[in-house]
């Protein structure tokens, strides 16, 4: 019992410490908060104005705002979760994680929690801008359900980030570029700014691999009802999201074990500028 408690305390502290660094690091310089928050919203605004320029129904603008909300988290997953170990390797910090007595997953959990809080500053401002300034239509009668789906989506997304982070143990610039390539193509595949139904049969592919598509489609249906042109029933999307969260965590655990072992054998774990 004592051993379990010690284990929990140690890993809880490690997760808290890693999250603390991320949160404090993001807030210590006011100009960073401003630039981190305001500038990324511009992309969302552009898509709102594209819909306005095309004379589309106002509900489509909600697609752009919800897409902007989730984009903040996807960027955080890609660059602050998946690619984080690339930066750590470059700075010579990665070896400290491996010599620490805590679980790797405690560090990853801390990174995820800190990343979610950091990304939320971006997301909340964009979401608020959409509702209070752009006045995009949204029905909040099912907001608690939408909040549940949102949290489930975050768990699945950050679990995917944990898996992707393991790739950086072995590879260098190749996966850095892969993370780069996971931006616009994923915005397309997940229907970030438009109903995923527009992808036709390809939408199933997006649903199979991207929790972003599932979460967005479900949230749109909850906020817009039939105007959302939902792809699958909300209940089914919720189940698929929960499954994808569990599956990604399991894959991350296996991938971390295999790639850590291999990168040690090949001498790539601390190899910089590869």
């Amino acid at each position: 019992m004592k051993r379990l408690r010690d284990w929990l305390v140690l890993n809880g502290r490690a997760a808290g410490g890693r999250a603390y660094v991320r949160i404090i690091g993001a807030t210590r310089e006011p100009s960073w908060i401003l630039s981190d928050t305001i500038l990324p919203i511009l992309g969302m605004l552009a898509y709102v104005y594209i819909y306005r320029g095309l004379g589309a129904p106002r509900a489509y603008e909600t697609f752009a705002v919800l897409g902007g909300l989730m984009l903040a988290y996807w960027i955080s997953v890609l660059w602050s979760m998946a690619a984080q170990f690339y930066w750590e390797k470059q700075m010579g910090n990665l070896e400290f994680y491996f010599t620490a007595p805590c679980s790797r997953f405690a560090i990853l959990t801390g990174m995820a929690v800190g990343g979610m809080i950091w990304a939320s500053t971006r997301a909340v401002v964009g979401f608020g801008l959409g509702i209070f300034v752009l006045h995009v239509p949204m029905d909040f009668s099912r907001a608690p359900e939408a909040a549940g789906i949102f949290l489930l989506t975050l768990v699945a997304l950050y679990a995917l980030g944990m898996w992707l982070s393991s790739l950086f143990l072995l590879y260098g610039r190749e996966v850095w570029h892969l993370a780069n390539a996971f931006q616009e193509p994923v915005y397309l595949a997940s229907g970030l700014y438009f109903p995923v139904r527009a992808l036709g049969p390809w939408a199933f592919l997006a649903f199979g691999v991207l929790p972003l598509s599932l979460g967005l489609d479900a949230m749109r249906q909850l906020f817009l009802g039939k105007l959302a042109s939902g792809f699958l029933p909300i209940g089914l999307e919720t189940v698929l999201l929960a499954i994808s969260g569990v599956v990604f965590i399991a894959i991350a655990a296996i991938s971390w074990r295999v790639l850590e072992e291999r990168s040690k054998r090949e001498g790539k774990l601390t190899l910089r500028w590869q």
């Binding site: 898509y47 594209i50 819909y51 095309l54 004379g55 589309a56 489509y60 260098g172 610039r173 190749e174 570029h177 780069n180 390539a181 931006q183 616009e184 193509p185 915005y187 397309l188 229907g191 970030l192 700014y193 438009f194 109903p195 527009a198 992808l199």
Partner: peptide, 30 residues
């Protein structure tokens, strides 16, 4: 960091995806 074919796919994937997002948006609206 990659052979020329992979690099070509990588270099074209992002801009093409951005264009196809607009195609999808236009298609949905029209």
């Amino acid at each position: 960091w990659a052979d020329p074919y992979i690099f070509a796919v990588y270099a074209l994937a992002r801009p093409l995806a951005l264009s196809l997002i607009l195609v999808a948006i236009y298609s949905v609206v029209s």
